[in-house]
């Protein structure tokens, strides 16, 4: 119980710190939000009226707590550029980003676990060496370059998908999946390479332990030893690793959404930065950071569920 309380308290503290840092970051910007919206030609009265409306004339702590209070309720104010509530913009962009992340993570898990086991079955064998060279190379390919290559090969040459032809999941879910598989592959492939490598190291470490010898001496086949006995233990460190991968996938999707023209949260952020639409930038930053933190929080809880030794520390 104490473990959970400690974890939750530290989660809330870090979330608070993130909000504080994000808030401060956007206060440092030289210039005034009101002037930047109205332009330098605006009269003093106009600027003053807008400052009043935006709440810019209140004291810093006051503004921080109203930002914090709003954020807790999911209210991040209005976008300068679209004059719409930021939360509305964010919700509209969620399906693409969540879909991209979910499909990528499924791809990573489904492909890397069998591949990792295959490599560790015969260390130094032909399959292992081929996969090692392949993973080493793929890890070096930035996701957005991979995305460009996928666009070229599957979009332009083979015409398996229409470039920029994102389909809303509410309109046609299969069409959405068919389109999303390509950006998801661009995000997933480098991560698959990393996960395979990590899993292999983890399995090889487990294979040296006594319980594996016991399992073998009981007459289990190598397949049963690997899948039933070793995999369970070897996956424990992989859970933490997956937490990092999920954070990476979210961050990586910022760039990938640009490559495949997906109307996701990442594109919202990039466009907002270009237009100096600070409420949107603040909201997206807090949102992504919070998701990453919560994912890591869940990973920690999972970790101690599967490995009770962690609780002792």
């Amino acid at each position: 119980m104490r473990y959970y309380v400690k974890k939750i308290v530290s989660l809330i503290m870090v979330l608070f710190l993130i909000m504080l840092l994000t808030f401060i970051a956007f206060q440092v910007i030289p210039g005034d939000g009101a002037i930047s919206r109205l332009g330098v030609d605006a009269t003093d009265e106009e600027v003053e009226a807008l400052r009043e409306a935006l709440g810019l004339n209140r004291s810093l702590p006051e503004r921080f707590f109203s930002f914090l209070g709003g954020a807790v309720h999911g209210d991040f104010g209005k976008s300068y550029q679209y004059s719409k509530p930021v939360s509305e913009l964010l919700t509209a962009r969620l399906p693409a980003t969540v879909g991209l992340a979910a499909i990528s993570i499924i791809l990573i898990l489904v492909i890397s676990v069998p591949l990792g086991l295959l490599c560790s079955r015969k260390e130094g064998g032909a399959a292992d060496r081929a996969v090692t060279i392949l993973t080493q190379t793929l890890m070096a390919v930035p996701a957005f370059f991979l995305g460009i290559i996928i666009t070229l090969v599957f979009g332009l040459i083979l015409k398996w998908f229409q470039i920029g032809g994102y389909i809303d999941p509410k309109v046609n879910f299969t069409g959405f999946l068919q389109y999303m598989i390509f950006p998801a592959a661009a995000v997933a492939v480098p991560k698959i390479a990393m996960t395979v490598k990590f899993l292999k190291t983890s399995v090889l470490r487990e294979l040296k332990l006594d319980y594996v010898r016991t399992a073998r001496s009981k007459g289990n086949t190598e397949r049963v030893v690997l899948w039933r006995h070793v995999l369970k233990n070897a996956l424990i460190p992989v859970i933490t690793f997956m937490g990092m991968v999920i954070a990476d996938v979210l961050a990586g999707s910022i760039v990938i959404e640009q490559v495949f023209n997906l109307p996701g949260v990442g594109r919202l952020l990039v466009v907002a930065i270009g237009n100096r639409d600070y409420p949107v930038v603040e909201a997206v930053v807090v949102y992504i950071a919070a998701v990453v933190l919560i994912v890591n929080f869940i990973v920690d809880l999972l970790y101690q569920k599967v490995d009770p030794r962690v609780r002792m520390r």
Partner: peptide, 22 residues
């Protein structure tokens, strides 16, 4: 180290984007 933990919990590209927008 608390500050460090907070900063590293941001994906680095996101942090860079915040900096650049500021």
């Amino acid at each position: 180290m608390r500050l460090n933990d907070t900063l590293t919990s941001f994906p680095s590209i996101l942090l860079a984007l915040v900096f650049v927008s500021v």
